[in-house]
Design a binder for these strands. Structure first.
Length: 369
DNA sequence: CAGTCGTGGCG
DNA sequence: TCGCCAAGACT
């Protein structure tokens, strides 16, 4: 913590930090965006919608979330509806959004709200933070936005705004504790919910990662980053490690009736609980085809398809070759295991398929027809 | 605590 | 094409 002392000393030396709250709120009132989960001005937001949107918005853009939010709300209008749903239906509805642990936690959280809190979201930080999938940021965001509590919600937008406002040169993530302290000092007693949203909107539309529109910023004359000409390059980040490449072979097995062999992945970890085309392990380094083929779900005349499927995850890149074979019958060794299933091609849309597996199926089925 | 965990858009 | 990174949480 000693290395953050200079940053904090700097902000304490800044002129009265209260002024920006009223300016920011005035800006927010003029530029307020209409978002599906946002209440009308002056009205109280529905905690269920706030929570659902915040979970979906974790590391995900507003544009991407839009359609998913509407679909979820239509299908599960209340937290009790969501709690009563089968997990697989939630995973299916979540397909394509990524970070599938969020969907598992979403379901667990809905059940916790019903069981611990009688189906009513708690309004205090501690109880919110104890819910599955709700961390420090999301607890504060719900408390502020849904209950207008004086909570400091620090997401990536706010980190950027604060880092620029105070010209913090310490790179992320080391500077996080300092930002948290600074952000907390700035939360106003009046309209803390609107303030939280205003800070995030400012970061999303004005104080953007690249090419910030400083001339439109209501805080321009109190921004040290702007004054020093470093706003655009802040916050700094520690260099990220290179993304390794993992390779493997996916096995597209088709039965006589045209159905495809699929399996459910283990309930946690990468793509946890989602449906996949069976494949060899994904390994770094040279692709050993013979070794991979030994991992086939059954011995068959596996035919390689031209081309590969490439998919980029957060911490590695995946390259899959696709091999195809005909199964003699839809019965056999694969069927007695609970995680395996045959699926007709025209019913693939009922499966909880992550995007990488949709790519594999598209690639494989295109070559087959 | 550093690593794990998706995906799409944009410059 | 490629790297960046988005309303982070969990282990």
């Amino acid at each position: 913590m000693s290395d953050i002392a200079p940053d904090i000393a700097e902000v304490i030396a800044e002129p009265d930090p209260r002024a920006h709250a009223s300016r920011l709120l005035a800006w927010y009132d003029r530029h307020r965006r209409d978002l599906p989960w946002r209440a009308a001005p002056g009205e109280r937001a529905d905690p269920y919608r706030v929570w659902l949107s915040e979970i979906m918005l974790q590391q995900t853009t507003v544009v991407t979330v839009g359609g998913y939010f509407d679909a979820f709300l239509r299908r599960w209008p209340t937290v009790r509806d969501l709690a009563a749903a089968p997990l697989d239906s939630v995973l299916h509805a979540w397909q394509g959004l990524g970070y599938y642990a969020r969907a598992r936690n979403l379901h667990a959280c809905a059940q916790a709200v019903v069981e611990r809190h009688g189906g009513v979201f708690p309004d205090d930080l501690e109880a919110l933070n104890a819910l599955p999938g709700v961390g420090g940021y999301t607890a504060a965001a719900i408390a502020a936005i849904a209950f207008d509590r004086q909570a400091s919600a620090v997401d990536g937008n706010v980190e950027r705004v604060i880092a620029r406002l105070h010209a913090l040169e310490t790179p992320l993530p080391d500077v996080k504790p300092a930002i948290r302290i600074l952000a907390e000092r700035l939360v106003p007693a009046t309209r803390p919910g609107d303030y939280a949203q205003a800070m995030m909107d400012l970061g999303a539309t004005v104080c953007t990662p690249r090419a910030p529109r400083c001339v439109l910023c209501p805080l321009i004359d109190m921004c040290a980053g702007r004054r020093l000409g470093v706003a655009e390059v802040l916050p700094r980040r520690r260099a990220k490690p290179a993304r390794p490449v993992r390779q493997g072979i996916a096995f597209l097995l088709r039965a006589r009736d045209g159905s495809v062999l699929l399996r459910r992945r283990p309930p946690s970890g990468l793509l946890g609980g989602m449906i996949e085309v069976p494949s060899s392990p994904w390994r770094e380094g040279e692709l050993d085809r013979a070794d991979c083929l030994a991992a086939a779900p059954l011995p068959a005349d596996w035919q390689p398809l031209p081309g590969i499927v490439r998919h980029v995850f957060t911490h590695f890149e995946l390259r899959l070759e696709v091999v195809v074979a005909r199964a003699p019958t839809t019965t056999g060794m694969a069927e007695d295991a609970a995680d395996w299933q045959w699926c007709a091609v025209d019913r693939l849309d009922e499966m909880a398929l992550p995007t990488v597996m949709k790519k594999v199926l598209t690639h494989g089925l295109k070559a087959l027809t």
